[in-house]
């Protein structure tokens, strides 16, 4: 009546990403690790990105929970993917990528998000204090508030653009929004996580005043 998808290749990405998101959040929560679903279908639900196929699961945890998350995930059969980097450059690592034989997608567990320039622990707590949940795979996934989600989405999109292309990239972010945002509210949310400058092009594209680099 049901068949196991234990080798992962039987699942499509459209199946694996939402199922993996909910499964991993439950796994981490059971271990006492708080996490947000970022990007992917959670952000589609929050109205900050247009529907599109995601290729991986993205989670965001408190930086102090890295070791607990790693122990939890590896204890459940997840394995670390990527290079074995020396501890001397640990400060520049912002996420750890995991894989599992049962899923055709990888999982990026972020403990820092580039462009959120406040203290990483305070960033997580600021996000957590205004968290929300979104329906995902017939369950509920923990996610940042919509304004914080927009900031993370904006940073994701701006990061892959050259500085002279940030205006166009910001316009594309705004064009993909599925709900209205007040630029002043977005600036206030950006201030909470040290991202006023980082997301200034998107605030400008929303019709708000552009901050200068000293803000």
């Amino acid at each position: 009546m049901t068949g196991s998808a234990s080798q992962g290749e039987d699942l499509t990405l459209a199946e694996a990403v939402p199922l993996g998101t909910v499964l991993l959040q439950r796994l981490l929560a059971d271990a006492g690790v708080r996490s947000f679903a970022i990007k992917g279908p959670a952000f589609v639900e929050l109205g900050v990105r247009a529907p599109k196929e995601s290729h991986d699961v993205d989670l965001f945890i408190h930086p102090a929970d890295r070791a607990a998350a790693a122990a939890c995930l590896t204890g459940a059969g997840w394995f670390v993917l990527g290079y074995d980097l020396p501890p001397e450059i640990d400060d520049i690592i912002y996420s750890t990528t995991y894989g599992h034989d049962m899923l055709p997608c990888t999982v990026d567990v972020h403990h820092v998000y580039p462009g959120l320039l406040a203290d990483p622990g305070l960033v997580f707590e600021a996000l957590w204090s205004e968290r929300t949940s979104v329906p995902l795979a017939g369950a509920q996934a923990m996610a940042p508030a919509a304004e914080h989600a927009l900031i993370i989405e904006a940073l994701h999109r701006l990061r892959s653009a050259e500085e002279q292309q940030w205006g166009d990239a910001a316009e594309r972010v705004v064009a993909g929004l599925r709900r209205p945002f007040d630029p002043l509210t977005v600036v206030a949310a950006a201030d909470e996580v040290g991202a006023r400058w980082s997301v200034a092009p998107v605030v400008s594209a929303l019709g708000g005043a552009r901050s200068d680099r000293t803000a």
Partner: peptide, 21 residues
């Protein structure tokens, strides 16, 4: 999913395996 549903039991997430129905 394509002509199916994919589901996973969350009660024991450490050993859960997706199922195809």
């Amino acid at each position: 999913g394509p002509d199916r549903v994919a589901l996973v039991d969350l009660r024991d997430p450490a050993s859960a395996t997706p199922q195809l129905c």
